[in-house]
Each structure stands twice: as structure tokens, then as C-alpha cells.
Design a protein around this nucleic acid. Structure first.
Lengths: 347, 347
DNA sequence: TTGTACGCGTTATCAT
DNA sequence: ATGATAACGCGTACAA
């Protein structure tokens, strides 16, 4: 009942361990009947090679690590699917790893690197925050996908790549779109000032739009989500919007920095007996599938996740094969107009 | 630039490897200044212990493995959060692993078991399909969470535990609820006959409801999702509903075996210019958060994921500490009535 | 074609 | 408090 090893299999079959090893790794140079015998023994005993021991010895291992901060976030789902396929197409294996809220992504990456003999690493989510220092210790190329390059500093530019949209710019466009509909009293729901969060970037874009028209931003129209719960959750959008509605501030449009927040916002508005978009226009950011199915359809900035995912993998392999140095690729977002925004009614 | 090991650190500090190892693992029996020196060297070199080598030698390691089939499925998100916290409370570490669509969950489990010296395994999603044979080779307790125990056979009863709702029974209740609203022409959107899928189970519950009233099931009202895309996706619900609407069959209610399908269905109905629930009632199954935020709110069977998650971890530790043998726990679902269902209008 | 023996980086055991 | 050394399970030269 104790753990069975390659040695046991070898003994059972009366062969050397190397022969078993050859069978395990699909080497051709082994007798047909010997192979049969070994295969049978493996099946019978339910023997499974110890991956730790393998990785310890192995030198090749064509693996790409994908580390996700907040695997719980449905935003990444479509990306994972595509990345998985693309990596597969290159005959590499994918190692998907969850980074806990309390874990340091760089630490996990470091650990995974020599544990699995990775050839490259992709980060999904996670801010490239304080960890950027540790990233230097990684010996394989690193790409942050979906992380705006605008948040990284000069030192970091050469240490890793990024593939994303320009969060700040797109947020400005979206705000301008609302302005062009006649809206002036535009509230924004965003994340509390974390130095490099998308919430912060998109808020900056919002400010840019106002600045460009020389309109001062009404700071009372900036609403921060509840820090005590999942920041970008539907529930948080709901509660924050309730705060907006009970604030007595005049608001004809709400810019939610995330689609999920927007859905919560729309529910709150409906529950308050107001109409969308007639009474209040709502827009989100990200272009999640659910927004297209919501009622009303959500106006949002659609991130081209297909392209971003594909380009991420492509760039990574360029990096691995030294065909390129670190780059910072920006894809344009697409304003996807739904039914949740409308021209402001003149009073 | 080559990989730095514990030996290098030991040499740098002029100490033995065991001393370094002690520092690494937080053993108390090491001199203060020696420890300082070693810590400094570690920080300076960016040395990270090789986890494979560790796991190879380690005997203890209090780890629980959580294997998710379809990590892309937002249904599991709230479960993961809770399970993570509960495991943490027991001072165990959580190893979260994604099981690819093509991988065999049992194989992954086997591999992970001796790779990480797991003490127990939790499966989320994944059908306990053909793999049940291999499960015997696992030496640590296994629990399937969210998998109905009704699909397992006598042999399996003692080989692993399950914690779930009774999919079939709950589906019957939901169907009865629709019947009690006066609906007779109730279509169902489900997954094509996979032996143990929840889609199949819930369809059986649907049949049960009809059988109990001695009403024959109109087989033409059973619609199967498109197999060529994600089975339980919103998009699939949308398309399948379009097929329903263009089928010329009279339908006053649609039972979608999943909330996500239901949301797609509602969008399709709205797009066809029909009203929900006046023209067609829609209900889902699962009780996902998004259903409560949708417009109209979705009627569904709410699975008590909190309880299921907590009980799963509790049972697992009972199993680990041999306080219990394998059990099959059923939690009742809760009929959550939203605005998407209504009494059938008499013709 | 097959077997032997060494090394991968770490922890545990036993000395010191 | 610290050091030397034997496993841990496997892959792979190298020998046979």
C-alpha cells in the first residue's frame, strides 16, 4: 500500500529501471514484448511517475506558465481558452496557476520557474506592483497581458513585455462619448486609489476628458467602491450606485470602470424605479460577454481579448527564441454602443 | 547566472547546507547572527528553493488539492473563495489546479498526490466519469463537491464522498412550480445525453414531474444545446432558444438547466420581440449571482454553495483524521422566485 | 536491446 | 548550534 516507484515496476518485470523509464517516455528502443509487460504492470499497479522527481532531472520540458491573480474573475475566461490553444499549437504545455490574494505573484513565478522548467511566463491580472524588483531574478521572458504599459517605469520597460489596451485613453473616449450625448453630470464608479490599478487609470482618462474641455471635475461625482468586498463585483456596483442615488447629486450618466460594476449599477437604478437609459445612462468597460446579453445591452469599451491573447503568446515565443526584445503592445479598444446610454434629455 | 542552489548559499556563508535548510524552514535552533548572514545571502542572490526537490524529500506538507474542471466556469468562483478560507483556517495549504478539457481528472489527481504530498482532494465539476476506476489508486480521501451522489454506483459509494444538491429532485420541483403556474407547454434546454452530467439529471427531474401527473412528455420540447460550443454558455442558451422560437411549437415556459443558459434564453426572447414573463416564462438552475441582477430577475433553484463548500471541507478533514467514512451529503436547494416566471395566461 | 550507477536540490538523521 | 551524509524517485550517460 505504500507508494510504488519505478523501481518496483522494474523488479516486477525483471528489468532495469532505465527500461521502464524508456517506456514511460515513449522511447522507441525497447523490445515489443518487454514493453507490453511493463505497460501491463503499470496499468495493474496504477503506478504514476513522480513529477517532482522528473522535473528535478529533466532539462527540456517545453512549458509555459500562466499565472492568474483572481482566477475567480470571469474576465479572464475567454483569454485562458485562447492562450491554451495557442500554446498547444506550438507544442508546448501550459501550466496554469492561481495566485492567491495574499501571495506575491513574483514569488509564485520564481517557484514555478525551476519547479516546472518554464520557458516563459504570462501574467494575467495582478498589478506588476511591488514585485517588479523580484522579476529580475526570473531567467525566462515575462509578459503581462491586459496590464497597461503606461503604469510601468523606465527600468521595467526592458524587464518584461506588456500587451493591453490603453486604459486611460479608452476611458477618455468613453467619457467623451457620454459628453457628446449631452451629459454633464457624469458620475464614475471606480476603485480606490491603488497606484497602478486599472481603476485608477480609467479614472485618469475620465479626468482627461474633462480637462480637455476645460471643465472642472466635480470630485463629489467620483465614487469609490466598498473596499471591504470584492472590488469589481456586481454587488459592489449595486451598493455604490445606491450611494449615488441617495446622494442628492444630480446625475444623468454613470461610468462604471468595469462591466460587472455596471450590471450592478443597472440593477440598482431599476430597483430605485428609474429607467435606463432614459433617466440615467450607464456604461461599463471591458466588453464582457454578459454585457451583450444584459437587458438593456450595455454600452462599453470592448477589449479585443482575442487579439491580445494571441499576440501575447506570439510575442512570448518571439522572446523565447530571441527574435525580439521586450515590447509594449497596445491594442485599440472598441466603443460598443448598447442600449444603456442615450442622449441626455434637456431639462 | 546559472541556477543557484542551497549549496551555493551554504558556501557563501561558510556554513553547512543543513543550517541553510533550517533557516529556510524556520527552525528555531540556529544562531541569530548565522541566521542573519544566511538571510542576507538569500535576499541578495534572489535564491528560491526548488519546490520539486523539496516535495521529493518532504514527508509532512499539510496540503489539500482542489481540482477544477472548467476553471472558466463562474459557477465555482464563490466556492473557491470559501474553500480557500476554510482550508486556511485549518492551517493547511491549498493547491488549486486546473483540469483541462482533454485531461483526465483522475490522472491529474494521481500526479498531484505524490507531487505535493496531498492529504486530501476535492473535485469541483468533472463528472466522476470513466475515471472512477483510477480513483482507487489515490491514497488520500476524495470528495466530489457539487456532483450528485445519485449518479454513483454501489462500488463507488465507499471510494469517495459527495456533497451536493439532488439535481434530479430539485429539477422536478422547479418543473412542478411551472406546472402549478398553469404551464403545460414547457420546453427544456439541456445538455445532450451524457451519462452522468447534471444536464441529464435535471432532464430526468423534468420527466419525473410529468410522470407524476401522468402527462406524457412531448419529446419535441426537449432541446439540446449545440455540442460544438461551450455547452452551458450564455451564447448557447441564446442560439438554442432561437431554435425553440422558430420551431413553431407552442411554448409558454422554458426550463434552462443552467442560469447562464437562461440568460441567453431571455435575451433571445427579448430580441424576438416577446415579453418575459408575459409571453414566455423562463427559469434557470444554480442560483448564480448574476441571475439576481439580471433584468428581469431570474427564477431559479439556488444551490447553497456556502453550505456545500463548508461541509465539503469539514467532511474532508473528518475523513483525513479518520473520524468518518465516506458519506454522501445532500443539501436542499431553494426555489428562488424572480420576475422571469408568471402564471400562464389562459387562452 | 538492456542494465548500472550517478546526480538533480532538498530534507531528515545522526553525529559532533 | 552546526555539519556530514543518506535518502527521495527519476533520467541518462555509459557500459554490457
Amino acid at each position: 500500500m505504500s507508494k510504488i516507484t519505478i523501481v518496483d515496476i522494474a523488479n516486477m518485470c525483471g528489468v532495469g529501471v532505465s527500461t521502464v523509464s524508456r517506456v514511460l517516455n515513449g522511447h522507441p528502443d525497447v523490445g515489443a514484448k518487454t514493453r507490453e509487460r511493463i505497460m501491463a504492470a503499470i496499468k495493474e499497479t496504477g503506478y504514476v511517475p513522480n513529477d517532482s522527481a522528473r522535473n528535478l532531472k529533466r532539462t527540456d520540458a517545453k512549458c509555459i506558465g500562466v499565472l492568474i491573480k483572481g482566477i475567480t474573475n470571469p474576465f479572464f475566461s475567454p483569454m485562458i481558452d485562447i492562450i491554451e490553444k495557442e500554446i498547444d499549437r506550438q507544442k508546448y504545455a501550459l501550466v496554469l496557476r492561481h495566485v492567491g490574494a495574499d501571495e506575491d505573484e513574483a514569488d509564485v513565478a520564481l517557484e514555478l520557474e525551476n519547479e516546472k522548467r518554464l520557458r516563459g511566463i504570462i501574467f494575467l491580472g495582478g498589478g506588476a506592483e511591488q514585485s517588479s524588483g523580484k522579476l529580475k531574478n526570473l531567467k525566462v521572458p515575462v509578459i503581462f497581458s491586459t496590464i497597461s504599459s503606461s503604469v510601468i517605469n523606465e527600468e521595467e520597460v526592458k524587464e518584461f513585455s506588456t500587451v493591453s489596451v490603453d486604459d486611460r485613453l479608452e476611458a477618455k473616449h468613453l467619457t467623451q462619448y457620454l459628453m457628446n450625448l449631452g451629459h454633464k453630470d457624469i458620475a464614475i464608479i471606480t476603485e480606490a486609489m491603488l497606484r497602478r490599478s486599472v481603476g485608477h487609470l480609467r479614472l485618469e482618462g475620465y479626468r482627461d476628458a474633462f480637462a480637455e474641455r476645460n471643465i472642472p471635475v466635480d470630485e463629489d461625482l467620483i465614487f469609490y467602491v466598498d473596499q471591504n468586498m470584492e472590488h469589481f463585483s456586481t454587488e459592489n456596483g449595486y451598493r455604490t450606485t445606491q450611494r449615488i442615488l441617495s446622494s442628492n447629486k444630480k446625475v444623468t450618466a454613470i461610468f462604471c470602470v468595469t462591466d460587472l460594476l455596471a450590471i450592478g449599477a443597472m440593477r440598482a437604478i431599476a430597483d430605485a424605479g428609474l429607467r435606463i437609459p432614459e433617466d440615467i445612462s450607464v456604461c461599463g468597460f471591458d466588453g464582457m460577454e454578459i454585457g451583450r446579453f444584459y437587458n438593456p445591452r450595455l454600452t462599453t469599451i470592448k477589449q479585443p481579448l482575442d487579439q491580445i491573447s494571441r499576440e501575447t503568446v506570439k510575442l512570448l515565443f518571439d522572446l523565447i527564441e530571441s527574435r525580439s526584445s521586450h515590447r509594449h503592445i497596445i491594442f485599440p479598444g472598441e466603443l460598443s454602443i448598447g442600449e444603456s446610454t442615450i442622449k441626455r434629455y434637456e431639462d
